[in-house]
């Protein structure tokens, strides 16, 4: 659905929007939601550096411990590590995810982030918005809106984990 060039264009536009909306990137920090959001946060950081000439702080959160189905989904043997090493109080934090779907992951990620402190604000960036929200959550920055059916699967593949950058939609 999206090739490497379309992904690059979308990310560049998102970086520009992040800088515009926040009056530069001076007080912006990026936090990728593990695992899909982490490489995208790194790419947005690189793009913001091209635009603004400075590297904004980047972190990551793992939402396993904050899932609203934790009690039934447990035990999940693989919990990733969260890394937020900057003082969140000083920043407007842009949460970054690859695919925005029900919104439950974002809800959990916000809870996780708030346990590190009280950010000035939290904004949301997603490369793909596939619809079907189950919570009142809306993105601030979207790469591409992709209307999908619930039974479809949206997969974001990125270098270096995949040979080329691409977004695929397929049957489950």
């Amino acid at each position: 659905m999206l090739d490497a060039e379309a992904i690059a264009r979308a990310l560049r536009r998102m970086a520009v929007e992040i800088a515009e909306r926040n009056g530069g990137a001076g007080q912006v920090a990026l936090v990728g939601i593990r695992r899909g959001g982490v490489p995208l946060a790194a790419r947005l950081q690189a793009l913001l550096k091209e635009l603004e000439g400075r590297a904004v702080p980047v972190g990551s959160v793992d939402i396993t411990l904050y899932r609203d189905d934790a009690a039934t989904a447990l035990p999940n043997p693989l919990i990733g590590r969260s890394e937020v090493t900057f003082p969140v109080e000083a920043y407007t934090i842009v949460l970054v995810d690859d695919v925005l779907y029900t919104g439950r992951t974002v809800r959990a990620a916000m809870d996780a982030l708030l346990d590190y402190g009280r950010p000035r604000a939290i904004q949301l960036a997603a490369l793909v918005d596939r619809g079907h929200r189950e919570l009142p959550i809306a993105p601030d920055y979207v790469g591409r809106v992709l209307p999908t059916a619930p039974e479809e699967r949206v997969e974001v593949r990125l270098v270096p984990d995949a040979p080329v950058d691409e977004v695929l939609v397929g049957r489950r």
Partner: peptide, 18 residues
């Protein structure tokens, strides 16, 4: 290791076993 990191955060609590 994951919970070691949690125990060094500002808010040393997660909602997992609510």
């Amino acid at each position: 290791e994951v919970f070691f990191e949690v125990s060094r955060r500002k808010v040393r609590k997660v909602p997992t076993l609510r």
